[in-house]
């Protein structure tokens, strides 16, 4: 008998009699405006966020923050003269010198400031992790309250790879001192974009 069959039959003979699956029926108090909650939690986990009216405004803010000569790469809408557009022709290892990556999330979750990004919004899977600074644009009205709502939104949608990103990469492995920027981005900026 293969290990597979041995394991499955051992599990089958040892598992208790069938217990029905619990319904997830958790009611959550909506006591706070989702946008302000999202921004408040984002700040508490080391991110920065703000509401903006247009991509021009985003570009203005980023231009002030980042060296014009640094490499910027964007997935989704194009940023002529400001960021190169993602191209599938390059090797992901060549993303090593990307200073700023600009991606667009499907939605954000207010309770933990996570944003949901699927592979098609990353260009390369490695991009949101390998860049030094991550910029995420989220449509202002696309904020859900909790992870329950998040998975309701995700439903059975297809993706090959997707991730929740909550703030910059971080570690507290050295004496519990929080350091932003472990292996991934040192900073994460979110822009809640008002309906254009």
């Amino acid at each position: 008998m293969s290990s597979r069959d041995k394991i499955l039959s051992a599990v089958k003979s040892n598992q208790p009699s069938r217990v029905p699956i619990a319904e997830i029926n958790i009611t959550v108090a909506d006591d706070e405006d989702l946008k302000s909650k999202y921004l408040r939690i984002l700040e508490s986990i080391g991110g920065k966020g703000q509401i903006v009216d247009s991509c021009d405004e985003i570009q203005k803010i980023l231009s002030a923050d980042f060296d014009p000569s640094s490499r910027k790469i964007a997935v989704g809408r194009s940023w002529p003269g400001f960021a190169e557009s993602f191209s599938a022709a390059i090797d992901p290892h060549q993303l090593e010198n990307v200073e700023v990556a600009i991606i667009e999330a499907h939605f954000a979750v207010a309770e933990n400031a996570a944003v949901w990004v699927t592979e098609d919004r990353m260009g390369f899977r490695a991009l949101p992790f390998i860049c030094q600074h991550l910029v995420v644009i989220i449509p202002e009205q696309h904020i859900v309250a909790t992870m329950h709502d998040a998975y309701q939104f995700i439903g059975h949608r297809e993706y090959n790879f997707a991730t929740f990103i909550a703030g910059p990469s971080k570690t507290a492995d050295i004496e519990q001192s929080l350091v932003l920027g472990a292996h991934g981005p040192i900073s994460m900026r979110a822009f809640l974009l008002r309906q254009e």
Partner: peptide, 17 residues
């Protein structure tokens, strides 16, 4: 685990790239 609302990354791997 650490009192964070969620880890920085919760990555869902479904198919190889």
């Amino acid at each position: 685990a650490t009192g964070q609302p969620i880890t920085s990354y919760s990555s869902h791997f479904r198919k190889p790239a």
